[in-house]
Design a protein around this nucleic acid. Structure first.
Lengths: 118, 118
DNA sequence: AGTTGACTTAGAGTGAACTCTAAGTTGTAC
DNA sequence: GTACAACTTAGAGTTCACTCTAAGTCAACT
């Protein structure tokens, strides 16, 4: 599929997609006869995964590390797994903290509801 | 308490504390005889609250809005409550989404554990 | 043949939130 | 009285993740 189709499918602007390619998050995108990008389903799956990593707070530099390991092939499987497991633990911690903050926010809002704030 | 004591207590650098004051997040900080800042317990409570809002993803510009409403006194109580309730709903949505992403990450990690990724 | 519109590139610009620098002041220790 | 550390200011610089611009290419339509 072409740029605009892919862009609206993954909900990432064409500018950003080119940027991701430039920094090495997205590799070996095929080109058609007029040098335009031709995205595959593999690109779709990969960029969806990248997007979820990003949306769970992983910096692009770390996603890049994962992408680089992935390109090196099966010898990096363990490193990739460890990277994801570390991220998993960080995400669990993040969620727990956010849940605590939510409770504290609810407490604060209750003070407002009881007219105990000025 | 002075800058360095307050800074280490709230775990925000002195640079950032001055920056927060400059953009209006922290108002009316007292000064001692040599024009140095003298932070109070009220400042401590306020900045802790600000920090939690920030750590739950509220942009500084919105925290500033809350701070401005707060300075206007009791007439803004309802607006402040609404602002916090909106933030509460956003935080709930954020947590739910992160929990979904965590499940998807766990699924991915399981593929690694089962040797189903290359 | 000419216009349109989607693409291409390199590189410049943006906004958020800091983070640091330079130059100066003040209170305490030797 | 002078060295020192901790503060002060205005303003410059940094990082991250985009976001946009300018100039050009290419295929399809009128």
């Amino acid at each position: 599929m072409n740029m605009s189709e892919f862009s609206s499918l993954v909900k990432i602007s064409s500018h950003t997609l080119r940027y991701y390619e430039k920094i090495g998050l997205l590799k070996n995108v095929q080109r058609n006869s007029s040098r335009h990008r031709e995205y595959s389903n593999k690109d779709l799956n990969w960029i969806s995964f990248v997007k979820r990593l990003k949306d769970t707070g992983m910096p692009l530099s770390e996603i890049k590390s994962y992408a680089d390991l992935r390109e090196l092939g099966p010898s990096t499987l363990q490193q990739r797994q460890e990277l994801l497991e570390l991220h998993q633990r960080q995400l669990e911690a993040h969620i727990k903290l956010q849940q605590l903050y939510l409770l504290q926010l609810e407490t604060k809002i209750n003070l407002y509801k009881q007219g105990k704030v000025s």
